[in-house]
């Protein structure tokens, strides 16, 4: 079985299990403020790290290239509170332009 199939099946099984557990857990178990704080922070650190790794690395190296232009457009769009699809599309356009100029 290919790595892709293992990843698809494993992720799907765990994704549903996690969702279903949530619907089955007595809420008092998660009332602990320490657990609540950690759970609130986890998506923030994971998603931020994912952005960094996706944006400036290639395999095991740090690589600054056309993707940075796309991210600069996205961050600018966020400062102006533009809608989500505009942010994504703007990043794609910015990155594509930089790529065509050889970066």
């Amino acid at each position: 079985m290919s790595i892709q199939w293992i990843a698809v099946i494993g992720t799907s099984a765990l994704a549903f299990t996690l969702k279903f557990i949530g619907h089955s857990v007595p809420s008092k178990w998660l009332a602990n403020p320490r657990i609540t704080r950690i759970n609130a922070l986890i998506p923030i650190v994971l998603l931020t790290a994912l952005v960094a790794v996706n944006a400036v690395t290639a395999r095991t190296k740090i690589v600054i290239d056309h993707r940075m232009a796309g991210l600069a457009v996205a961050i600018t769009a966020l400062f102006f509170k533009l809608p989500f699809p505009v942010i994504v599309l703007g990043a794609a356009v910015g990155s594509a332009i930089a790529y065509h100029f050889g970066y």
């Binding site: 923030i44 996706n54 796309g70 991210l71 996205a74 966020l78 989500f84 990043a91 356009v93 990155s95």
Partner: peptide
């Protein structure tokens, strides 16, 4: 620009 669109979407979510 698809390789920048993905991290940009995550920035938008975070």
């Amino acid at each position: 620009g698809l390789d920048a669109a993905v991290p940009a979407a995550f920035i938008g979510l975070v």
